[in-house]
Nucleic acid binder design. Structure first.
Length: 221
DNA sequence: CACCAGGCAAGTA
DNA sequence: TACTTGCATGGT
């Protein structure tokens, strides 16, 4: 067992003990989850909730209904989430892919191995690695690990990775240290977000960080 | 007022 | 490959 793998496991245990199960993703359906994944790109979740409420009010948390909606109309409804023009286009790119290739049938879209599903998602303009992995894990419920800005920040501050570690490197670290278990990956990423939102902001330094599995000089406590 | 938020694509060197 | 820029609203 490598040092980093041990830390990955210890951090999970500490987060779960401190915060308890998070039961992610906060959405009532797989369709709503995917929309939220696009809308939350570099955006506070609070803003995304307003945009989702607008779509819900218009009965647009539905692939076929969305597919029939002009992208300009969509853009106005999602304005609170920011970047609304580009995000409306990204949403339509994703929806059009599923409706054209899978007849708007999410179950059919998800009925393939995680790695091919990930590749198909990445081929869509506007769906990058984090968004693709989030959809694979939280909508299709297949065990792929989601890396986000919070994940990298927490690992950097605990000296598990260095500044140059890229997305795939961090993802591989988690997937090597842990069994490929969907509920585990689901819970771990959710716990990271919960912890970082409260305690791992850029300027809110580490003194209130509830992760105390090891000292910040990198030595195990 | 400045800074930040659960990224991504496109352009440049 | 590595770095830069545009995209935009709303909370602190």
């Amino acid at each position: 067992m490598t040092r980093s793998a041990t830390l990955i496991r210890q951090i999970y245990d500490a987060l779960l003990e401190r915060f308890g199960p998070q039961n992610w993703w906060p959405a009532q359906s797989a369709t709503e989850m995917m929309i939220g994944a696009i809308l939350t790109q570099n955006t506070a979740w609070k803003n995304v909730e307003q945009a989702l409420a607008n779509l819900r009010r218009e009965g647009l948390l539905d692939l076929r209904a969305l597919h029939q909606t002009p992208v300009e109309t969509l853009a106005q409804l999602i304005r609170p989430a920011g970047y609304y023009n580009i995000k409306a286009r990204r949403l339509m790119n994703l929806i059009d892919f599923i409706c054209t290739r899978y007849d708007c049938d999410l179950d059919a879209f998800f009925d393939q191995p995680a790695h091919t599903l990930r590749e198909e998602l990445l081929s869509i303009s506007g769906v990058g690695r984090e968004t693709a992995d989030s959809i694979v894990l939280y909508a299709a419920k297949k065990p792929t690990f989601v890396v986000d800005a919070y994940t990298a920040r927490i690992l950097r501050r605990h000296f598990v990775i260095d500044e140059t570690a890229d997305y795939e490197e961090i993802k591989d670290l988690f997937e090597s240290a842990l069994p490929a278990d969907e509920p585990l990956f689901n819970e771990y990423h959710a716990l990271i977000v919960m912890c970082a939102k409260g305690y791992c902001r850029p300027r809110a330094l580490c003194e209130h960080c509830p992760l105390n599995v090891f000292d910040h000089d990198g030595a195990l406590r």
